[in-house]
Simulated scan of single mutants.
Amino acid sequence: MTRTWLITGVSSGFGRKLAEQLLSRGECVAGTARRLEAVADLTADYPDAFNVWHLDVTDTPRIREVVDDAHERFGRLDVVVSNAGYGLFGAAEEATDEQVRHQIDTNLVGSIQLLRAVLPHLRADGGGRILQLSSVGGHTAGPGGTLYQATKWGIEGFTEALAAEVAPFNISVTIVEPGGARTSFAGGSLRLPPKLDAYDISPASDVRQALEAGVDAPGDPARIATAMINSVDQVPAPLRLPLGSDSWTPIVSALESRLEDLRARKDVALSVESAD
C-alpha cells in the first residue's frame, strides 16, 4: 500500500534524502521547505506524488494550516517526520537574546507544535508513525553546545512522554539520534553567535574553532535516510534510533557515566525521607 509521508525541511539534508528515496519507491511525500525552489526538480519529476508547502516552523498558525492542507491533498498522513531544525553553537553567554529564542522556537517549540497539529489527523485515521529528529546531542552535553543541546534534550523528553500518551491510538513514535553526517549542516544549518574574546580560554572556543575549520563527519546521509525509512516497518517501533558510531558510542558513555554518578548519590537520595 502506498503511504503518505509528511516531512518538514525537505530542501536539504536528511529531509531531501528521505524525499528522494521515498518518491523513487513509489511513496507519496508532503514536504515543507523555506526555499521552494530547492525542490523544484522533485515537483517536476513527481507531480502526483510530491507536494511542497512553504513553512517556517516558528509560525504555529502556519504549521496547522499546512498540516490540514497536506491531509486534505493526500487523504491521510501515514508517517510524520519532524526534521526541520538547525544548530546554534558557541558559549551560552555569546548568543544574543534573539538567537536563544529562535533556536528554541525552531528546534523545540516548532517540533512540539508540528506533532500537536498532526495528532488529530492520526487519531481520526486510526494510527500512524512519528519520527522525531533529535541527535547524539539529545543525550550528551558539552561546551559550545548549550543551546542546541537544550532543545534536543527538551524534545527527547517531550517525545518520549508523547509516545506513551498516543500508544492507545495506534500511533508509534521513534526518536532519531544521528551523529555527524555529510550534509549541508555546516553550510546552511549551523550558526555561530558573535564571538566574545573572554571565552578564548574556555573549551567552548575549541568547539567554535573546530566548527569554523570544518569537521569530517562519518555518517552517510543516504544510509541514515534508509535506516529511518526501514524503522517505520519495525513492529514494535523502536523508541530511539541512534545512527552512527559517533552517536552510539557517546550515548552509551554518557548513560553509563550518569548511572555511575547516580548510584554514588544513593545514600543522600534516600536520606531525605522521613522515618515515620
Score class of each variant (00 low, 15 high):
Ile7Asn: 03
Asn83Gly: 06
Asp216Cys: 15
Asp45Lys: 10
Leu77Asn: 07
Ser253Gly: 09
Ala225Phe: 06
Gly26Asn: 05
Gly31Val: 00
Gly85Ala: 04
Leu262Glu: 06
Asp78Met: 08
Asp206Phe: 05
Glu98Ala: 11
Val66Gly: 01
Leu115Asp: 00
Glu160Ala: 15
Ala19Phe: 02
Val79Arg: 01
Val232His: 09
Val39Asp: 01
Ser257Cys: 02
Phe74Glu: 01
Ser189Cys: 05
Thr249Val: 07
Ala124Lys: 10
Lys195Ile: 12
Glu27Tyr: 09
His54Thr: 11
Ile224Ala: 14
Arg73Ile: 02
Ser245Asn: 10
Glu156His: 13
Val100His: 12
Leu18Ile: 03
Arg240Cys: 00
Pro120Met: 06
Ala117Asp: 04
Tyr148Ser: 08
Ala117Met: 02
Ala161His: 10
Ala84Gly: 08
Ala186Gly: 10
Gln99Phe: 03
Pro178Ala: 06
Gln132Ser: 05
Val66Phe: 03
Ile7Gly: 03
Asp206Ser: 13
Ala254Met: 09
Ala186Asp: 11
Ala92Cys: 14
Asp125His: 13
Trp153Leu: 07
Leu23Glu: 00
Gln149Leu: 15
Ala181Gln: 04
Leu192Pro: 14
Ala92Glu: 12
Asp41Val: 03
Pro120His: 05
Ser257Asn: 09
Asp220Lys: 11
Trp53Glu: 15
Thr60His: 11
Phe74Trp: 08
Val173Thr: 00
Leu88Met: 14
Trp5Cys: 02
Ser271Trp: 11
Glu160Arg: 15
Val166Trp: 01
Asp233Cys: 07
Asp267Val: 03
Arg258Met: 02
Ala124Trp: 14
Ser231Trp: 00
Ala225Arg: 01
Leu192Trp: 13
Ser184Pro: 12
Ile130Pro: 07
Val136Glu: 07
Arg240His: 06
Ala217His: 14
Ile224Cys: 07
Ser274Gly: 14
Ser202Tyr: 05
Arg25Thr: 05
Leu241Lys: 00
Ser245His: 12
Arg208Gln: 07
Pro250Gln: 04
Gly154Ile: 08
Ser135His: 03
Arg73Pro: 03
Arg76Glu: 05
Gln234Ala: 06
Gly126Thr: 04
Ala210Trp: 05
Leu190His: 11
Leu36Phe: 09
Ile175Thr: 02
Leu77Arg: 12
Arg16Asn: 01
Ala222Lys: 05
Pro221Lys: 04
Arg265Leu: 08
Lys195Thr: 15
Gly13Ala: 02
Thr174Met: 00
Thr43Trp: 06
Ala210Pro: 07
Ser253Thr: 15
Thr159His: 07
Gly138Asn: 07
Leu108Val: 05
Pro193Phe: 15
Tyr86His: 12
Leu6Asn: 06
Pro194Lys: 12
Thr140Ser: 08
Ala222Gln: 10
Val268Lys: 10
Ser24Tyr: 02
Asn107Phe: 14
Met228Gln: 07
Ile130Arg: 06
Gly144Tyr: 09
Gly187Val: 02
Thr183Arg: 12
Gly157Thr: 02
Asp276Thr: 15
Asp200Leu: 08
Val109Leu: 15
Glu27Ala: 05
Asp68Met: 07
Leu241Gly: 00
Ala164Lys: 14
Glu260Arg: 12
Asp68Leu: 03
Glu65Arg: 10
Thr226Lys: 07
Ala227Cys: 06
Thr174Gly: 00
Ile224Thr: 14
Gly145Tyr: 09
Val207Asp: 04
Leu239Ser: 01
Ala198His: 09
His139Tyr: 11
